[in-house]
Simulated scan of single mutants.
Amino acid sequence: MAKEIERKFLVQPRKWSDLGPGLVIRQGYLSTSKQCSVRVRTYGDKAYVTIKSATSDITRDEYEYEIPLNDANEILVSLCEHPPIEKMRYRIVFKGHTFEVDEFTGANRGLTVAEVELKDAKEPVDLPDWIDREVSGDPRYFNSNLSSKPFSTWK
Rank of each mutant, 00 (worst) to 15 (best):
S17N: 12
D18F: 05
G20H: 01
G20A: 05
G22V: 11
G22Q: 06
L23R: 13
I25W: 00
Y29S: 01
L30G: 06
T32E: 04
S33V: 01
K34G: 14
Q35H: 11
S37E: 15
R39S: 08
V40D: 00
G44L: 13
D45N: 12
K46Q: 14
A47W: 10
V49G: 04
T50R: 08
K52Q: 11
K52E: 09
S53E: 14
D57A: 09
I58G: 13
R60T: 11
Y65H: 13
E66P: 02
I67Q: 03
P68Y: 06
P68K: 11
P68I: 14
N70S: 10
N70R: 13
N70T: 10
V77L: 11
C80A: 05
C80P: 00
E81S: 10
E81T: 06
P83M: 12
P83K: 01
P83A: 03
P84T: 04
P84N: 08
K87G: 01
Y90S: 14
K95N: 06
T98D: 02
T105G: 07
A107F: 09
G110E: 13
T112N: 07
T112F: 04
V113Q: 00
V113H: 00
E115V: 02
V116P: 00
E117C: 07
K119Y: 12
K119D: 13
K122L: 15
E123R: 04
V125L: 13
V125Q: 06
R133S: 12
E134R: 02
S136P: 07
S136D: 04
G137P: 09
G137R: 05
D138S: 13
Y141V: 01
F142H: 05
F142E: 11
F142L: 11
N143T: 05
L146I: 00
S147A: 12
S147C: 15
K149N: 15
K149I: 13
F151E: 02
S152L: 12
S152W: 07
